[in-house]
Design a protein around this nucleic acid. Structure first.
Lengths: 222, 222
DNA sequence: TCATCTATGTGAAAGCCTTCACAAAATAGG
DNA sequence: CCTATTTTGTGAAGGCTTTCACATAGATGA
């Protein structure tokens, strides 16, 4: 692992490579369920609709995990990718905004399955504060800075309306947290050492809309 | 518009450009609310944390919308982008899988606001079939092919477990639909003329996990 | 009307990412 | 043990995207 850390300091690894690591991890779960001991870059590529060269190149940034002529050891590679991604542990997460989307995410099994554990909820609505969602009592957002500061929570999911998202983020930053998953449709301003990922579901539909309207078929003659 | 269609046939426009068009559209709403008549590429870039050159280059693929020395006419540019994206109309959408996420999306205001109208729900769970969500009665997924074929519905949102997503997609394709927003954590196999966008929320948390573990700060000395 | 200023539109350059193609390493089979 | 086969790991090439930098065109003000 330390070898990797050092590599990372020398060469910045692209966002796309990291995102594909998640895909490889997922593909390896499938292969593992099939009972295979090893898997080739070709097979992994097929599962996620990528190219074998891409798979090999991506993995090569982090080390040599395969055996020539044979492929990659499934269990081992999966563990190594989990280690690189930092998902070989549990992450405690707070969620702000217990509306439609927010409360759906509290019960979202895929988060739990990957070790992302929502352990605290915040809202500003008096009717919601004190109510119980899957065993978690909703806290008043007024106390967010003190309740997050120095807590075991390291990530926050934001499901509040766009108009208040920036205020919430300012508090999260004040509390010293550095990772935010944002469902509000606004560009959040944060210091350079804070990471934000945006989940913009309407934008994906807009892309589909564009594709349909422009008949943007993949196998169209150019 | 036809000028644009023709341009499009000559030069394929990148996915990133289209995604940024959505951002520009959103930024223009903000500028419009502020009461400005015109806006510069610099201002648009600031709102979405991009560069002015990027904004101008992206827009230039579709035409010359600005006035030198002045900027872009807000209302007009917003309408033109909406036209390009195909969001100057209502899209009727079916949603399959009325679980946590699915039912949250039925009430998701951002979809409605952008003209994405969920008009039909499907599920395979007998307890859910026939139940009412925001005025829509859940249909039996068995009838999905016949109910979608030739209907006014052109997009489908999939919120079913990964293990059944491919079967659902096969039916959607059979019904002749060509646009799918997929929340299941699997890579769906579709013909080349069908568009799929994947919404993988756990993957975004994995990216944050990676960033934190590798202290991947943006202003770090290389 | 003219000079100054502002901001677009866009070729060209730079940078980044993906794909190619092949040497190297290990397996498998006889 | 040796040959044929498989599949990795990786420089180099190719292709795509972003950024640069400036000519151009219109606005603004005296």
């Amino acid at each position: 692992m330390d070898e990797f850390r050092e590599t990372e300091l020398k060469k910045r690894i692209s966002e796309s490579t990291i995102r594909r690591l998640s895909l490889y991890h997922r593909a390896l779960e499938i292969v593992e369920d099939n009972g295979s001991e090893t898997v080739s870059s070709k097979e992994l590529a097929k599962i996620e609709k990528l190219t074998p060269a891409q798979v090999r190149k991506d993995l090569s940034f982090f080390g040599s995990f395969g055996t020539r002529g044979l492929g990659y050891p499934v269990k081992d590679l999966k563990a190594k990718i989990a280690r690189i991604l930092g998902i070989d542990r549990v992450w405690n997460i707070a969620l702000v905004g217990v509306g439609n989307i927010g409360s759906a995410l509290v019960s979202y099994k895929e988060f739990a399955r990957q070790g992302f554990k929502i352990v605290k909820l915040f809202d500003n609505d008096q009717r919601k504060i004190g109510s119980n969602h899957k065993g978690i009592v909703v806290s008043d957002i007024k106390n967010i800075v003190s309740e997050l500061s120095g807590s075991e929570i390291e990530m926050v999911v934001i499901c509040v309306p766009g108009s208040v998202a920036q205020f919430v983020v300012d508090d999260i930053v004040k509390a010293g947290l550095r990772a935010i998953l944002n469902f509000a449709p606004v560009n959040l301003k944060v210091p350079d050492d804070v990471f934000v990922r945006n989940e913009n579901m309407a934008m994906e539909l807009e892309y589909l809309s564009y594709a349909l309207v422009n008949n943007h078929s993949k196998n169209r003659v150019k």
